[in-house]
Amino acid sequence: MGKTLFEKVWDAHVVDRVDGGMEVLYIDKHLIHEVTSPQAFQGLRDRQIAVARPQKTLATADHNVPTKDQHLPIKEALSRLQVEKLVENCDEFGVTLYGLGAPIRASYT
C-alpha cells in the first residue's frame, strides 16, 4: 500500500515506539518565542541540563513587540520583561536569537 505525503515525512522521523502506541518523533527545527518558552528554559535549569541541539533551535520575539518605535525599549513592563527573559535565556543556553529587525540585543544589554 502506498503512503501519504504525511506518512512519508512522519515515518522518516520516528525514533522509537512506546507501548500503548505513542511514538517518539525527531524534530529537525525548533522555533521558540518569548511567550511560551520561559518556563521551558526554567525546567532545563531545574533539571540541570543543557539545550540538546542549540544549532537546531531558533528564537525570535514577536508576540509582545510594539509596532511603533521598535528602537526604544518596550513601554509595558511585563512585555519588556518577557522579551528580556528570552534574550537572557538564549545567551545562557547558546540559542541564536533573531530579532524581528529591531536591534533587540542593543536595546536591552
Binding site: 511514538e23 517518539v24 518523533l25 524534530i27 525548533h30 518556563q39 533539571r47 541541539r53
Partner: peptide, 16 residues
Amino acid sequence: TSQVEQVLATQCLLLS
C-alpha cells in the same frame, strides 16, 4: 510549553 521543554532537552517529542 512542556513540549517546548521536551524538544529543548532531547530534540524529540512523544506523540500519538
